[in-house]
Write a protein that binds this DNA or RNA. Structure first.
Lengths: 209, 209
DNA sequence: GCTCCTTGTCACCATCTGGTGACTTAATAT
DNA sequence: ATATTAAGTCACCAGATGGTGACAAGGAGC
């Protein structure tokens, strides 16, 4: 039984894609390469070159698989809790919290965020472009306030977004950041609370010059 | 003159430490190893083992050199602009801005922040512990408000701090984050403005339950 | 003079990586 | 049945890494 795999290219490609995910979550991107992926999948590495034209091709296929990133709907929330009906501060507050939760649900996301932060090569650019496509699609679906305060609102939200990315990436390896716990769900509930406070106080329209 | 270096252990050790910094900034931590450092310093790698007992020892020496991290004074500001005299919102706002500037001044800091974010091994732990020592020293020097709002204040500041770390690490490789520019000094002036807004609006005491 | 320790040099090892060419074996078309 | 194509296996390459043992030569003390 051992020698001579059932000749099934589709299954082989699927196993390779799965192996990318496994290697990425278990060993991190520093261990991601043709050797490790092939070893994990139990498939000769030469097939990665034949079927995907090398590691970049395989990673591109991975980036467009559904393991890679949450859907826009998952963040926006469908039906009842539609974000676009909320006032601006609540909208962004709830949106950011959902974003954090959606990212946190996928173990692989932390790895990808960290990687993009740390290396810039053919592989990371593939994932980054895919992620930016996603973000553009998200913005398409959000109402745009065309008053001049919109720009500063977006900037503020982006800054909080970077904090989320940082904390999610960090939580893979560390239990806290200078005392701010980022391990358990309770820790994250606390962080969500802070995000909410920052959003509502910063974005809330107030009587001001 | 080439063969037979002037026998000067101190100078050799200094060149190795300098080479750590150079390799780290130029090639990143993924290229940091005995071979690369020795090559950069023009010194046989065996001396790294002899003098520093290997790479961890060399990095530990580096972590306690002044190339590694800004001084506490640089962030707190000395003399005239003493942070501890300011009201709470201004204190943190100004402190975070100074922190960002101090980190941004050192090319190597981005690399270290990114590394700690991404790997956890003997080497990164050395740098992390050193950084946390630094942070503890910083907190010693700041006045502590013992009212219950202090905890949420600290959490808020830490979240903004993570954003700073993220953006500094990212700016080594990318010019923006989803459209938020992080390249030029003007870009960072904008970010400082946002930090200031978030701090003053979130931390400012307001009539509230 | 001689000895002894230190500084520095060189050659070598096992191991891992990305990548390629040549092979066998199964399935399909004629 | 036979020829062709695709799937999978194996062995090998060059280059890089971390790490070690053996050696040459400078400097200080006796």
């Amino acid at each position: 039984m051992a020698k001579g795999k059932a000749r099934d290219r589709q299954a082989t490609e699927a196993r390779l894609l799965k192996a990318v995910e496994t290697v990425l979550t278990q060993e991190g991107f520093s261990g991601l390469g043709v050797n490790a992926v092939a070893r994990e999948a139990g498939i000769d590495k030469v097939l990665i070159y034949r079927y995907f034209n090398g590691m970049p091709g395989l990673l591109r296929a991975f980036a467009y698989s559904d393991a890679f990133w949450p859907t826009v709907e998952e963040v926006l929330g469908e039906g009842s809790s539609d974000l676009s009906k909320m006032p601006v501060a609540d909208r962004w507050s709830a949106g950011l919290v959902r974003y954090a939760r959606a990212l946190r649900r996928r173990p692989i996301v932390g790895e990808i965020l960290a990687w993009e932060q740390v290396e810039k090569n053919e592989l990371t650019e593939i994932l980054r472009l895919r992620r930016e496509e996603w973000f553009a699609a998200l913005r398409e679906r959000l109402p745009r306030d065309d008053d001049p305060t919109d720009a500063v609102t977006v900037s503020t939200v982006l800054v909080i977004g970077t904090a989320i990315h940082y904390l999610i990436a960090r939580s893979r390896l560390h239990g806290d950041f200078n005392g701010l716990a980022i391990e358990s769900d309770a820790d994250w509930a606390h962080i969500e609370q802070i995000i909410h406070t920052m959003c509502s106080r910063t974005l809330q329209p107030r009587g001001e010059a």
